[in-house]
Design a protein around this nucleic acid. Structure first.
Ligand SMILES: [Mn+2]
Ligand SMILES: [Mn+2]
Ligand SMILES: [Zn+2]
Ligand SMILES: [Zn+2]
Lengths: 140, 140
DNA sequence: TGCTAATCAACAAGTCGTGCTAACTAACAG
DNA sequence: CTGTTAGTTAGCACGACTTGTTGATTAGCA
């Protein structure tokens, strides 16, 4: 993701107003590796800006997503997660605690076999599920 | 997935009754490569058995899932899809028409890098997104 | 300064899936 | 064959997540 300052510039280019709410969300996303949901991002935002609405958080995330500055990741377990890391990367997910971490796979593009003549692959998403070190430690 | 006859036996073993509804769903899933949702499976079922309820379709799919006879696939776009193919395989999804096909990747297990010391991978899910041959043909 | 987008609260709606109840049906054990 | 009880159904509600709407207020920016 771009820096908060760059995002401010991009929003102005697009004719979007640069509000304190949007700037706060830019800052909260900057370097954020937690893969937060809109809800969890809202909770943090509300501490620094009481009165900000969940609606606004959703809206700003949608705008950022439409601009390609964040990606949204649906792991099929509850709410969509937002990711300011838009590099070509993948994820490991702990089935126990739900933590999500970035991983990089360098064998891509992957080869596959199947009844898919002429299919043009645009993107590949890989999710590794398992148990993180902390959860393994606790359950031992 | 097991054959309808084998599923009948498994259900009896588990103490589940073998109803016409369940048997119909077994048959509809047998060899089904469409990755249907509960809803689409219900629509087909209702043609052969008017009066069957969506509730029953959901319930039977849950039972089959709990027994490991089907897997459910959440592609993050609408309803969960059910897959009677429980082999180790992956999926290509057409972004245009939504069709899902099975693919097999033989480079697994995949190597990855990241800040994930001690993470124990239990499963890997790969989704290739793009455009199928039919959609490419139509848009050309 | 003024236009207008943005925000907010409040409420509704949509989708997907499950929970619950009450009545009826039918599978299967004895 | 019969009785028990699981299964099914309709109907309604609810829950999670997300978006739509409306109307009033605020504030960004030209
Ligand atoms: Mn990520
Ligand atoms: Mn499949
Ligand atoms: Zn964990
Ligand atoms: Zn297609």
């Amino acid at each position: 993701m771009k820096t908060p300052e760059e995002l401010v510039a991009r929003f102005r280019e697009q004719g979007y107003k640069v509000t304190p709410q949007r700037q706060l969300i830019f800052r909260l996303l900057n370097g954020n590796t937690a893969h937060p949901t809109a809800e969890t991002l809202y909770e943090v935002a509300a501490q620094q800006m009481p009165g900000i609405s969940l609606r606004t958080v959703y809206q700003t995330l949608s705008e950022l997503s439409a601009m390609g500055e964040v990606q949204h990741i649906d792991l099929g377990s509850g709410a969509v997660r937002f990711d300011p890391n838009v590099d070509d990367h993948h994820h490991v997910v702990c089935s126990t605690c739900g933590v999500v971490h970035d991983v990089y796979v360098n064998q891509t593009p992957l080869q596959f076999e199947g009844d898919v003549e002429g299919f043009a692959v645009h993107s590949t998403r890989i999710v590794f599920s398992g148990e993180c070190a902390q959860c393994a430690h606790l359950s031992a």
